[in-house]
Design a protein around this nucleic acid. Structure first.
Lengths: 240, 240
DNA sequence: CACCTCAGCTCCTCAGACAACCTGAGAGGT
DNA sequence: ACCTCTCAGGTTGTCTGAGGAGCTGAGGTG
């Protein structure tokens, strides 16, 4: 039951959150002048330095800007889109669904554009994954993800590569939970190894259709498992 | 000659910069424990509260994390990956390629999951696009993007919706340039209107394959145009 | 070897003081 | 009527001293 961290958190953190909420909720739109430090201190029931540090934190995040003698002003309403946090909040199933969708098409491009260097990297990742099958869950999942990342990299589109990288943390968490929960990965030739080998071969010989089909099959299978475990409410998704 | 702002900037800002430099330069890698407040204050030649606020600013930016009783630790070396900036830097072609890949699959899901409300929204967006064909370039591109966004929304996957939203600014820029450059959009039943109508109909009747095919055709066509204009080096990509 | 205790360090919070600065109102000159 | 100057009030910036809360590692105890 995870024991959900019980930090009462510092006063500065609380103050920061209160102020940030005012901004992100639209209560204080861009251009607003915040109440003075002393006023805020009284309102929030904390000391002036505490308020100052909270404001500094928001300034560091790019939400407000302090002008000496004039006041503190809102200059943005969103913390520059915290993508990782958004992925953490979204359900594993949704994340995995998008990942599937992206990666399958990436495999198609990879089959069309792979270079010799890509193929070498793919084979290396494949054997690494095989080796990691005996290791602990984390290492195995890492190796698995590395192989998939190699496929994406072979598509030679930096946006695609960055996008996949953005998904990795959320993906890793979901997969570790899954492996841990279902005791997947029986060690006698772990399941998926032949699938992965087939995928690499398809990319190697430039067979885009086969690469798509193979990857789609694998990812759909995992997605199905995720859906089932999500239904049982086991992981319940890091519900804060 | 711009009169280059002569603000000596506050001590806190200077301290923040000094500390940030230490981190981004690799002098203090992830995991490093920063010197204590009093030590930093002495080395930087400022008061303790000044140091504290500088540290808070870095914490707000996600570079460090303070643990009471233990110290302040470096938890990242980059200010949280500015995704919009990355898209701006990447070429239009790469962005559009990924957009195509994502949206085509989104159309498939949309055809499978669309609700009555989605269909109503799609039709509304379609007529809006038709109406905007007479307006200026910006408005037309906006209406076009809105229609595509409606398709993505019908897939009912928040991650997908957010992802597409992330692409919108970069997409908009590229499309405005393209429309402006080629004088596309002849007003007599603008090109693509029938294609878009067909797409909406396919989603409406749940024909995933047709939706995919139609959309893929349209986006590939535009992608081809982008490739050509990019070659002539016209836009040269918003090279800053 | 495991467990407990504790001193010393760290960050956290507050209060008070003064400096530097901006803003707007009003006086005064042109 | 317009411009300029002055000044008071409010704001952020900085420093200091004090005490509270929490972590960490050394050393003692069983």
């Amino acid at each position: 039951m995870a024991l959900g961290a019980l930090s009462p958190s510092s006063l500065v953190d609380q103050a920061t959150r209160r102020l940030r909420d005012q901004i992100t909720s639209g209560e204080w739109p861009v251009g607003t002048r915040l109440p003075g430090e002393t006023t805020l201190a009284k309102t929030l029931g904390v000391g002036r330095s505490t308020v100052r540090e909270a404001v500094r934190a928001l300034a560091g995040a790019g939400l407000v800007q302090a002008r000496q003698g004039s006041g503190v002003f809102v200059i943005a309403t969103e913390p520059a889109e915290d993508w990782p946090a958004r992925l953490r909040r979204a359900g594993v199933v949704h994340v995995y669904e998008v990942r599937t969708l992206v990666e399958v098409q990436a495999a198609r491009l990879a089959a069309e554009r792979r270079t010799d260097a890509d193929i070498a990297a793919l084979h290396e990742a494949l054997t690494a994954r095989r080796a990691a099958a005996a290791g602990d869950d984390g290492a195995f999942v890492d190796a698995d993800i590395a192989l998939h990342a190699a496929v994406v990299a072979a598509a030679h589109n930096p946006v695609l590569t960055d996008l996949f990288a953005e998904f990795v943390p959320a993906l890793r968490q979901g997969l570790v939970d899954l492996v841990d929960l279902l005791g997947l990965r029986e060690h006698d030739g772990n399941p998926g190894d032949d699938t992965h080998a087939a995928l690499v071969r398809a990319v190697e010989r430039g067979d885009a259709e086969a690469a798509c089909r193979t990857l789609q099959g694998e990812l759909d299978h995992t997605l199905e498992l995720l859906r089932k475990t999500a239904q049982t409410g086991e992981g319940a998704g890091a519900a804060l």
